[in-house]
Nucleic acid binder design. Sequence first.
DNA 1: GCCAACGTTGGC
DNA 2: GCCAACGTTGGC
Length: 151
Amino acid sequence: MTRWLVKTEPDECSIDDFARSPDIAIVWEGVRNYQARNFIRDMTVGDEVFVYHSSCKHIGIAGMVTVVRDAYPDPAQFDSKSDYYDAKSTPDNPRWTAVDMIFGRKFPRLITLDELKVLPQLESLALVRKGNRLSVMPVSDDEWKTIVSLC
DNA sequence: GCCAACGTTGGC
DNA sequence: GCCAACGTTGGC
């Protein structure tokens, strides 16, 4: 089992959207960055994922979700009406990958970016590094424990 | 809204 | 394969 962190704008998909329908998996589609895609490809059922709210008023980790379907070709890349459509991608040779996730838990409080930044245990986590834009990243066991212990 | 940092594109 | 130009991300 591997652990991860994904960024999302809460206007698009927040931890509350997961919590609202705890029995329904949400398709994590639309990642269009190769490094992030490579991480998604490695996701398998049972992986745990922090949900980080970005580009919003309250920035930080809001909770966690669980992978319920192994990585598979992102359906949005074939949908010409989708914002995530990619004309260069074909079912035979798909470029982008999606994964299905289900609600895990919402943390009793938001773990803010500010408090994550000052922890020396997290200095190698891409999330807190200056200029970082990676939207999907692995979280080590130690990093996971450090973050969970904050809430 | 600003803008630094970054990833991608495309001409050469 | 280099790199300038461009578009995007994301904190502030």
